[in-house]
């Protein structure tokens, strides 16, 4: 199996992203390394093959967005919207992530080894997100499906307007958002959390976490509120 290094100081980002979609090239080269990223936006977007991509250095916005099947590791921080709308595969960030990490993602696993800023997992639709550090305010805002694990503290308005999705937090929760409540940690939740932590390669005891989710009070219009309209 061949490995290829792409130096973004030498080669354009567009050429890199085209190579990562070039079936002929990908039949030979399954491992990629990207250097001199300098915070460029849109690195390794829309991948659709089970290749591995290591990004050395900080990445900008929408890194590994729309990922399918690929395994992308950023050795540094990422800007807004890492792994946005991911469908499958794995995205790992060894540093911090800016706002809206994993936004609207349908599947796959996003691991953030540092902290995630505001609105991590906004409108998540099935993705699993594991954050080793803290998350900012409004994490899992309008979450619809998937799991969010926070090993540190979660900021204010956690799970605001959440539909479904299960949230596990080890540390302190600033405040709970509208319609988000604490729920009992049953054996099945301990099991699924243990599996998620193992998949993410993070050594934490599932027994230390609390579970939050939707009270399902915002699903339906309440006739008592009719006078407000």
């Amino acid at each position: 199996m061949m490995m290829k290094t792409v130096d973004l100081a030498e080669q354009s980002l567009r050429a890199l992203n085209q190579s990562l979609h070039d079936g002929e090239m990908l039949s030979d080269i399954r491992e990629w390394r990207v250097t001199n990223t300098d915070g460029a936006h849109n690195i390794a977007c829309g991948l659709n093959d089970d290749i591995s991509v290591d990004i050395d250095g900080h990445a900008g916005y929408y890194c590994a967005g729309m990922n399918q099947r690929a395994s992308v590791t950023v050795h540094g921080n990422v800007g807004v919207g890492v792994a946005e709308n991911m469908m499958s595969g794995t995205v790992r960030v060894t540093g911090d992530a800016s706002q809206s990490a994993g936004a609207t993602a349908h599947g796959g696993l996003l691991v953030i080894e540092g902290n995630a800023a505001a609105r991590c997992g906004i409108s998540m639709k099935g993705v699993d997100i594991v954050v080793k550090g803290n998350t900012g305010p409004m994490s899992a805002f309008m979450g619809q499906a998937g799991r969010l694990v926070v090993c540190g503290d979660a900021g204010d308005a956690l799970g605001d307007s959440i539909y479904e999705a299960r949230l596990y937090v080890k540390g302190r929760v600033g405040t709970l958002g509208a319609d988000c409540i604490e729920k009992p940690m049953r054996a099945e939740h301990q099991e699924e959390l243990a599996a998620l932590l193992e998949q993410a390669g993070i050594d934490e005891d599932p027994a230390d976490f609390r579970r939050y989710g939707s009270a399902r009070e915002l699903y339906h219009f309440k006739v008592d509120n009719a006078s407000a309209y």
Binding site: D38, G39, H41, H58, G60, Y61, N77, G79
Partner: peptide
Amino acid sequence: SEYRALAG
């Protein structure tokens, strides 16, 4: 605003 501006 973005890390790109700091990269150099």
